[in-house]
């Protein structure tokens, strides 16, 4: 089976844009020697994981800024962990016969993700640290290759859609420190291309699949769990500990359950869920994400 010409044509166009905007991540940004998390905003306050909770309302401005800094570090860290598995999956698919028509673009995709991680890692290691990931694999069951390909690109698209919402808003937020704005803007520009490719490819792989009902159910269950799991990582107790909260795990649980945050997750995920529903990939929204 080969990919439809439409996917190949999109990949070709995107490759041309990627070539023209090819970037050197080591010279693109002037990193300040130090930053001051008590003075500058590093995340938009409305996007923080405690926004709209009683905890947040009780916080003085300096504490809010400190939380915004550690949440930026968490956001960059979860991008690093996401991009690590993304790069591995892209490398695995380079020059495979089903993907041969988009091999050129997979090279750009992989190259751009590596550069993103250089920016994210540059910030985390200069001014804080890379937060640990709680992702771990125990039963990577052997799934048929086409199921694995679909899941890989669908997960990538979901992850990138959520991230891009944050990037898009924070790139425009004039309150933010210039380095934070730059990292968000730069990521958004390249992610916009990845998302065009992702939506096209996910649609194509879904429309041409001929799986039995059990496989379709499994795929849907997996994607729903992936959405919940991806969102959970935005409520990281390690962040709350660094920001000085007394019980970081309870803070994470309370924030996760809070009505304002449920609404926030629903709003941010709406576009992506709308796409998944319109393609009949995920007809119902995940039960425990919101």
């Amino acid at each position: 089976m080969s990919l439809a010409d439409s996917v190949a044509a999109v990949a070709k166009r995107l490759s041309e844009v990627s070539q023209h905007s090819y970037q050197n991540p080591y010279t693109a940004l002037d990193w300040p020697e130090t930053v001051d998390p008590d003075v500058d905003w590093f995340s938009s306050p409305e996007l923080l994981s405690l926004a709209g909770t009683p905890e947040w309302d009780a916080m003085p401005e300096a504490a809010r800024k400190r939380l915004a800094f550690y949440e930026a570090v968490n956001f960059y860290s979860l991008n690093i962990h996401g991009e690590k598995s993304l790069m591995a999956g892209l490398a695995e698919r380079l020059y495979r016969k089903e993907m041969i028509q988009v091999a050129d673009y997979l090279h750009h995709f992989l190259d751009e993700e590596n550069k993103h991680s250089i920016f994210f890692g540059g910030f985390c290691t200069r001014y804080a640290r890379v937060y640990r990931s709680r992702q771990f694999s125990v039963n990577e069951e052997e799934v048929p290759r086409d199921v694995g390909d679909f899941l890989f690109f669908a997960k990538t698209m979901i992850f990138e859609e959520i991230v891009d919402h944050y990037n898009w808003l924070q790139a425009r937020d004039e309150r933010l420190h210039p380095v934070a704005r730059y990292i968000n803007r730069n990521h958004h520009v390249e992610e916009a291309r990845h998302l065009i490719f992702g939506r096209q490819l996910v649609t194509e792989l879904w429309r041409t699949q001929q799986w039995d009902a059990q496989t379709v159910d499994d795929v849907r269950g997996y994607l729903a769990a992936f959405i919940t799991s991806s969102w959970r990582e935005y409520y990281n107790p390690d962040v709350y500990a660094d920001a000085g909260l007394t019980d970081p795990w309870e803070a994470a649980e309370t924030a996760w359950q809070s009505p304002a945050q449920r609404e926030h997750r629903r709003t941010v995920t709406a576009k992506c869920l709308g796409f998944l529903a319109s393609e009949k990939i995920l007809p119902e929204e995940p039960v425990d994400a919101f």
Partner: peptide, 10 residues
């Protein structure tokens, strides 16, 4: 499945 592990660890 493995996708549940982050929540389980938390």
């Amino acid at each position: 499945r493995s996708v549940h592990i982050p929540e389980l660890l938390l």
